[in-house]
Amino acid sequence: MSDPNGLIQPGRPAPGFTLPATPDGGLVGPEQFRGRPVVLAFYPADWSPVCGDQMSLYQSAAPVFAQYKAVVLGVSVDSIWSHRAFAESRGIEFPLLADFEPKGAVARRYGAYNAQGEADRALVVLDPTGKVTWSYRSPPDVNPGADGIFDALDQLAADRKVMAG
């Protein structure tokens, strides 16, 4: 079921989409944040202990993401109701997007959907124009941390300085 082309690669425009998101179920998508870097964090499921770690970690790192003016969006195939309870229990304030109906449609477009019917644990960083600047797929049981994301955000900031100069 996974995209034969694999995870979306740098240089490609990020497919546009909106999905219902925490906290209130309103539609959220990357295009709303043009002008800022966007981090799409696909993950297999709410509640699995490893996922909790990864999303909790990104919440803890919120002040660092803020320094880059970066927006973090978590995406899994869980329903908005599951996302809400999960977000509340872990104190997660950034939006968790429900790729629930049709199931996994957004994950598939990013090449981040697997045969188990879940999103892969995949990170996709979009530049302020909505182009993919970095992507990474982690084994499902390995929390990839955030160092790769911040390296990508540093690189974006450096590129922008060069263009301005």
Binding site: D53, Q54, L57, S60, A61, P63, V64, N143, P144, G145, A146, D147, G148, F150
Partner: peptide
Amino acid sequence: VRRDFVGGIRSGVNG
């Protein structure tokens, strides 16, 4: 405390 935390994040600390 934040300095330690950010340094950890940059070293790939994930939990």
